[in-house]
Nucleic acid binder design. Structure first.
Lengths: 350, 350
DNA sequence: TTGTAAGCGTTATCAA
DNA sequence: TTGATAACGCTTACAA
């Protein structure tokens, strides 16, 4: 059974003053002298008083809580993003309510609904794979709750957006493959109702165009974020009459599948086949050969998302009108799988 | 600016009935007939009414929120545990407020303080490495908040405890090494003010005793959870006059360091040196050779922690008096690093 | 500088 | 079956 807590009334009674006055003293209201503030605070500590957020929230209509909605809490990209969000929020005296959608649209709608109910001040969200549009986010805005989308977003919804420079980063990765002398580069992407995957593919196309190379359609039309599925795709391409000499994939798990296909077929990586992934999953550095990948700076992405809310907190106009898009620049991690010049132990020294 | 929300008064006015009645109807109070319930619910949907948790919480003194305190959100063990907790909580209509301590005692005390202030119904916590005792948890109990400690706990605090069978699992891992013919097994453990590390060491000792082997003191006194540090420890031991022929470590990162030391010294694994880690980090299956490890079932551990709260929710006596300890059995994942008979590709098929 | 009254949106209790 | 009242603990506006 929950205990009855000490309230400002208890403190007021103990000091023979009025509860309102206690409230003001605890909030260090300017009209109250220091002596009284100290006295009240001392008594509060003595009685183990704790401020009751609910009562205050009910009164002020602000909860100092940020809602976070992500597909899976325990995927490294998201858990890192959450860690970044948590850090910034706790610095600003806010708390986090976290929901996971398990990539389900239905759960996402429920989560958003719940967070509105919980009266959160702000929602930071990354859309599920199933989500085709962000119409359910209109309700967030309609309730005057700040909205920040990160990584997987719907740009038709008026909100802050925090994302990577996916197109440019993909371009840099492909450029690196070209510089290493790979010519027949195949791409394995992600579902293209999500902007990030369109962008990554676009970056791939950009570089292929710039290099004035022509590649067959089969190199560009594959979509898979999964290991096993990508392995099959890679096997098929590598066994075709016109096999690629490199793969760029929109996810590290797809790259892992490609690497396995290369092993299946006894194709040397990076000598005969270059591989470049995307995401910087922890395992990439432990593979043999180590896997080149794009570091999305997920923690910074999360931190920036939260910062965006706090830096615009006192600016109603910006929150509702001047939403902007922030870009976090990815960095390339070139490891053995794409670097013909590199030698080294499979476990890099850190 | 937050919008004013639709309240039960708005519904009441629209239907020309009393707000109290609306509340009862929405909560499907038995004294209200179905017709009325439907009517009220329909109107509520029409007016986009959302139940205001704060007001209800203020009144009932229950928040339907579980506070979760973990050292680091983005460590796989904890992010998996959180995913498990989230799943069970959301099934039971509860939400999660998550705090990370970054292994700092000070932050842990603050987090607990904050959660009490937020009036959470339950706190699920795993202690930081810096935490020497759980006295700060007394406050949780004093406020009548349910307390569940998992993995890293202080048993002197009266609470539910959910943990792995660390001692037995460690024993099984060492037994496996012995069965493989390794005789001179060294141990690298964790800080021993935490029960889990005492237990893992104990499991190691148990098996060494049972096998009636004597091992030098230097094999048992090392403590490190870090890769680089463990590498140094392993190098020193392997270069000593009496080198071990196997390592059992309390963490996968320590095992990784040992594996690197073996590579540094060109010692064949598993032929000349067996290695067994603990935790089942994702990377273990991607190493060459793949690393044997103990799977802690972190998601189940989290889920069980939450279940414990819900299954005792209506039982005041149990919550406050009959706290018990639940054990989640670890499973052994024997990979190449400890299995002299195993051959295979470094990337296992899944 | 201090005190008073009202209200945030629910729900429990009691009355009709 | 429905209605009225009070209370949860805090803050804001205003009065003394």
């Amino acid at each position: 059974m929950k205990q009855k807590r000490t309230t400002i009334y208890d403190i007021a009674k103990a000091l023979n003053i009025h509860a309102t006055y206690v409230s003001k003293a605890l909030n260090e209201h300017p009209t109250i002298n220091q002596e009284m503030i100290d006295k009240v605070k001392k008594k509060a500590a003595e009685l183990k008083y704790r401020h009751n957020s609910f009562a205050a929230n009910l009164r002020t209509n602000y909860s100092k809580i940020c809602g976070v909605v992500v597909p899976k809490i325990n995927e490294s990209f998201f858990s890192n993003a959450i860690a970044g969000i948590e850090e910034v929020c706790s610095q600003n005296g806010h708390h986090l309510i976290i929901c996971q959608t398990q990539e389900s649209y239905k759960k996402e709608v429920e989560a958003v609904e719940t967070l509105i109910r919980q009266n959160v001040d702000c929602i930071i969200i990354s859309l599920s794979l199933e989500t085709k549009n962000g119409n359910h986010l209109q309700d967030v805005l309609a309730n005057g709750i700040a909205l920040i989308q990160f990584d997987r977003y719907d740009e038709s919804i008026l909100s802050f957006i925090v994302k990577n420079d996916n197109r440019e980063a993909a371009g840099r990765a492909v450029k690196h493959l070209l510089d290493q002398g790979y010519q027949k580069i195949a791409y394995i992407g992600g579902p293209e109702h999500l902007k990030i995957y369109i962008e990554r593919k676009q970056g791939f196309i950009d570089m292929i165009r710039e290099a004035q190379i022509s590649i067959p359609y089969e190199y560009t039309c594959n979509i898979s974020l999964k290991r096993e599925e990508s392995r099959k795709i890679a096997l098929e391409l590598l066994n075709s009459p016109n096999p690629p000499d490199a793969f760029f994939t929109a996810s590290d798990f797809a790259a892992l599948g490609v690497m396995q296909a290369a092993k299946d077929l006894n194709i040397a990586v990076p000598e005969k086949l270059g591989i470049f992934g995307f995401q910087n999953e922890e395992f990439t550095q432990y593979l043999t050969p180590t896997l080149s990948t794009v570091d999305q700076k997920s923690m910074e992405l999360g931190a920036l998302s939260a910062q965006l809310y706090f830096s615009n907190l006192h600016n109603k106009e910006v929150i509702t009108k001047n939403y902007k898009t922030e870009i976090v620049k990815c960095s390339l991690i070139t490891n053995q799988s794409s670097d013909r010049s590199k030698k080294g132990s499979p476990i890099p020294k850190m």
